[in-house]
Design a protein around this nucleic acid. Sequence first.
DNA 1: TATGAATGAGGGTTCATTCAT
DNA 2: TATGAATGAACCCTCATTCAT
Lengths: 185, 185, 185, 185
Amino acid sequence: MQAIRKAGVKRIYKHGFEAMKLRSLAEDVGIQAGSLYNYIRNKEEFLFLLLKEVLEELLEGLERELAGIDDPKEALIRFINFHLRWHTARKEEVFIGNMELRSLSKQHLQEIIRMRTEYESRLRRILERGNEAGEWSVADPQVISYSIIASLTGVCNWYSPRGRLSQDEIIAIYTDHVLGAVGAR
Amino acid sequence: MQAIRKAGVKRIYKHGFEAMKLRSLAEDVGIQAGSLYNYIRNKEEFLFLLLKEVLEELLEGLERELAGIDDPKEALIRFINFHLRWHTARKEEVFIGNMELRSLSKQHLQEIIRMRTEYESRLRRILERGNEAGEWSVADPQVISYSIIASLTGVCNWYSPRGRLSQDEIIAIYTDHVLGAVGAR
Amino acid sequence: MQAIRKAGVKRIYKHGFEAMKLRSLAEDVGIQAGSLYNYIRNKEEFLFLLLKEVLEELLEGLERELAGIDDPKEALIRFINFHLRWHTARKEEVFIGNMELRSLSKQHLQEIIRMRTEYESRLRRILERGNEAGEWSVADPQVISYSIIASLTGVCNWYSPRGRLSQDEIIAIYTDHVLGAVGAR
Amino acid sequence: MQAIRKAGVKRIYKHGFEAMKLRSLAEDVGIQAGSLYNYIRNKEEFLFLLLKEVLEELLEGLERELAGIDDPKEALIRFINFHLRWHTARKEEVFIGNMELRSLSKQHLQEIIRMRTEYESRLRRILERGNEAGEWSVADPQVISYSIIASLTGVCNWYSPRGRLSQDEIIAIYTDHVLGAVGAR
DNA sequence: TATGAATGAGGGTTCATTCAT
DNA sequence: TATGAATGAACCCTCATTCAT
């Protein structure tokens, strides 16, 4: 099953979910297409479970990262750090999570959206707490949280482990950038 | 033909390019599927022409917006303004341009990428000119240009003409945000 | 379309509806399987339309046969005559109508059942009118109408145009049999 | 094994033999599909054995019912009685025996047909003996035997233990009906 | 006897595309 | 330019059946 998951992520990342043929996926793991159905109920649900698992791990990871952190600036820095690390390390899964939502059923889409919203709201609350603490003065925490997340997530469009910049360098650049944007440099 | 274009944009935006059936597209404009081929060569080329036209207008628009502007800060402000105005006004086409690249043939993809890169490079050069002019000090203009564009483009994921914020308010928020980020507030 | 219908009846009669492959049906009429879908919406609906048309013609035929007949005995004789003629002449379609109901969707099944019930009720009413007119005395017109119809319909299990008995001989035998059964010989 | 038989009869009666999935059948008796093959050789043979057993019991039952009866009228009455009792009590198995013959292999079909023919011939011989004894005068014993059996068997299309009529009432109606038909009321 | 994973052969259906009219 | 019937290649999914454990 883990092999199917892995092969699925690779294929979906490369060709898109609709273009991924179950026959090819099966071939990747060395079984017949029909045998896949011992592990998945259907193609759409397979995608859903993939995305759900990613989001669950993402949420848990963030939870752990922010546990016990009260200072808003420290929290923001950790958020940036965590988000970038995650979105470079598991770039493929993240990419799928942004691209293939349209292939989900209505029900499944709702659940995924719910989890994403929950994740995003963590950043919004950090920004709000910073406002309250006088750490910075962000005019519209909602919009700015979207802006920051979009900006950070964009990294997985061009990041490569063999690229010019290391993870740490990227994190440094973005951290400085975002802190400047909220006025907390 | 313009009717086909319009219907195409709507359908692709709503369900994705692969999920858009030519039969449905034909129905939208009141003809039979076969008749579409009097206007398009095939489905993939239809997508390509759509995207190309959008990018051409985008590039021309930016050209006009920045014509004769030498001051980097002024240029940056105008870039933000233009990009947001465009990405809220023609949100659907922009969205497609970000999502459906995978459905293009290799050749067509290259051409689209080239145009996108050209567009992005305008912002990078603005950032570089600001560095040279001492207007700000952006550590990595390449990365920061990606960051800014991702952040601005993200607006089309949530913007609605009937939403809480007007175009102008959104522009104000983002302009302040980005200027802060580069240290030119 | 009529060719498809004809080929469909033959195949369903011979191998059963579930066993009829659309590929074979298409082959029978000299087209590809996919082309069938220019004429039918899906396999199940094809069956439904087949059965519905048969039943419509059956009902219309009976209507015409009994039009203006008041005498119950005369009506009964005509019913027997009509039913047998129909069930020998269009034996295959009738057979399908009795065998393949289980392959219909709930909705379609209901509609077919409704038409069958309507047909059966004609005989029941003839029996009732005979009771009222003192022509005969049938204890339970409902049950007896079922019994008569089952008995007559059974003919299509063994009838063959090249068999020992002609249509007319069969009709004579059954007419005498049924009249005796209701006590009107 | 008896559990499988029972579950099989139920499923086949309800959805038809082709529509009965071995997976469902296995689920009904609380095992996996593969385990069924410890009890059956394959799906088709399972059906055959089902039908054969039913017909064997039917034949034996009739044998016992008619043993030592010489009088044709008495024999006819007993035949009607037996057939109806059987076809109401074991309606589901009988129904299958009439509907699912097409799913049998050629060999198996022949054997089943042989048994059915044997059963039917008992009635034909009763009618013939009645003719010889001057008890009645049936023009075509072959056809009339088919007619009577079809009429009686039809009862399992509408009979319900909780219906308007009891088994005994139904038997009374049919007996009177058939005796009238052969002219022996 | 039971499991459960695997097989492999389709089966219905879809859909971009073609082409004679 | 429009039609509509046809193509043909695939695709997802099903299911009886097998077999190592």
